[in-house]
Computed example of a mutant assay.
Amino acid sequence: MELLANALSLILQPCYDLTGNWWVSILLFTVIVKVILMPLALWCQKNAIVMVELMPDLNRLKIKYFGDSETIGEKQNELYKEKHYHPMLSLIPLAIQVIILFGLVDVIHGITDGGAPGTEFLGMVPVEDGGAS
């Protein structure tokens, strides 16, 4: 995770140098990551459109081979290969975003632990009394 945090800090630090504010730099970092992940998101959207187009064919298969789940599975896989549909593709952007989030948490901890100005409220955890620790 530290390697990822170092890579993400190479993006976040220039954002801070540009804005001079950690809050705005994190917002700018988020926009940059979304722009970088846009092609992957579009690929997943196209895959979802293919699935919508396949639904009538899949329903016909389920009716035609009712009760024979093995044949239905085989025919579904053939149809997926024919139409270039990838059922697990939608998980890829989610996994990438989770990994980036974990790396960003390490970067923010590094910033707040260093006592950088303007980070007084970053990384603070509320206590039982309702105050900030």
Rank of each mutant, 00 (worst) to 15 (best):
G131F: 07
K64W: 01
V35A: 10
N21A: 07
A7E: 15
S90P: 01
T119C: 10
W22T: 05
K34N: 09
L58H: 12
N6Y: 11
M124T: 10
L4F: 08
M51I: 03
W23H: 08
L37F: 02
L91A: 06
C44M: 02
Q97R: 05
E128R: 08
K75H: 15
D106N: 11
E53R: 14
E120C: 03
N47L: 01
V98E: 00
Y85W: 04
M51H: 06
P126W: 08
I32A: 09
D17W: 02
E2W: 04
G20K: 04
A41I: 00
M38A: 04
K81E: 06
L58D: 11
Q13F: 07
W22G: 05
V35F: 07
I92L: 09
K46N: 05
A48Y: 00
L58N: 11
V52A: 13
E128H: 06
S25N: 06
T19A: 09
A116H: 12
G110Q: 08
K75M: 15
V127S: 14
E78F: 09
I72C: 12
I11A: 12
K62D: 08
I99Q: 01
I36W: 01
M124A: 05
V52H: 11
L58W: 12
V52Y: 09
L40C: 01
A5S: 13
G131S: 14
A5F: 07
Y80W: 10
D113V: 13
Y85K: 00
G130R: 04
G73C: 11
L37I: 00
W22R: 08
P117M: 05
H109R: 11
D17P: 00
Q97E: 03
I92W: 01
